[in-house]
Design a protein around this nucleic acid. Structure first.
Lengths: 194, 194
DNA sequence: ATAATAACCAACCGCTCGGTATGTTGCAAG
DNA sequence: CTTGCAACATACCGAGCGGTTGGTTATTAT
């Protein structure tokens, strides 16, 4: 990797972390510059504006991370148990920063979706992709599931509940409420089976 | 009501609307001053700082509004149907601004819970109150419900899912996803009965 | 040897923000 | 009649923000 590309990747990584911790608007470029030990000129050489940097972080850091994390549990033999194991292990592995900072995608959705159209469309696209992955997994085992299930509706329901659960852990500052919601969500998911 | 109290109430109302629309940090005091047609001196006569104004909005506007909205469907004869009717009517009555702006409590939770302890504790208290209302309603009809239900867990699950549903409507900018999640949530709630 | 370009750096700019210090007005008590 | 306080208004402050401008350096092509 060239020096320039290395610099760019470093900016993206640091910016992703800052945005995750403080949100997009509250993320200060000067903090990113300090952490990367570069000047403002360097940042504006690689990115034309703060918001373009935000878009790049979304597309090049958050999106691949997200798709990668969800793909494994959904492509396993039994996606129902895959999902439940995945969600349960989330509650165990959840670091302190994740309890406090929440999910990057959900955070950006809350903060930016109604302010900036560029962010909104990217977030929407990501949510639709995630939903489609769930739908695909459910359809793959539709024989094992109850009749009359609206797969897309179920998918969005699962995603919504998970987001709401991270929201609850922000205010309680511990995993307990999150774990409870996830436990109940797993009950719901397992009840999808016949 | 005295003139001074009138001024104070006016500030609270306008601030509540601004915070709902733009979040706490992005809410500008000067905008509030313009809308209220008062000076900065007037605002700082009634409130010692921006954050104290925020607390006052939470306690004197959001909290009573919230408790009032939830009490009705939960104290009805059949809280299961009360809840479902309540949620369904939300999807119908939902104004355009509510689709875009989301729930004030959830917004503040996402934005401020991990930044300011004063907000965090107030939000947590509100969430616990809401959960307790749901738990009380469920216990009142526990004879009609399935065995082995963890009422508190169910309460937080419902709240979490509702919050997640409003989040989804922010990115899609329409009611459709919200309606789907609520529809699935009602299926879940009705399935609590034997 | 020189010209051009990529990859930066340092200094500065206008703007908005929350907050403060001081000034003013009207009314009510003594 | 004046004193005093409640209820404001006006003007200003420093800090931090995103963004711009004008260099500077090292590498590469001619």
């Amino acid at each position: 990797m060239s020096d320039a590309e290395q610099t760019r990747q470093n900016i993206l990584t640091v910016a992703a972390d800052e945005i995750h911790q403080h949100g997009f608007k509250a993320t200060s470029l000067s903090v990113i510059l300090n952490r990367c030990e570069i000047s403002k000129g360097a940042l504006y050489y690689h990115f034309t504006s703060k918001i373009e940097l935000g878009y790049a972080v979304f597309e090049e850091v958050y999106t691949p991370m997200f798709l990668n994390v969800w793909q494994t549990p959904l492509t396993v033999d039994d996606p129902i148990e895959g999902l439940c194991d995945f969600l349960t292990s989330m509650t165990e592995q959840m670091s302190c920063s994740e309890v406090v900072c929440g999910c990057p995608l959900n955070n950006l959705c809350e903060e930016m979706a109604n302010v900036d159209e560029g962010f909104r469309l990217r977030i929407l696209c990501m949510q639709e992709q995630l939903n489609q992955m769930i739908v695909d997994a459910l359809e793959r085992i539709r024989g094992d599931l109850r009749e009359n299930l609206a797969f897309s509706q179920v998918g969005y329901f699962i995603v919504a509940t998970l987001n709401g659960a991270t929201s609850l852990s922000k205010s309680s500052r511990n995993k307990l409420l999150f774990q409870q919601v996830i436990a109940e969500l797993c009950l719901y998911i397992r009840a999808l089976k016949k």
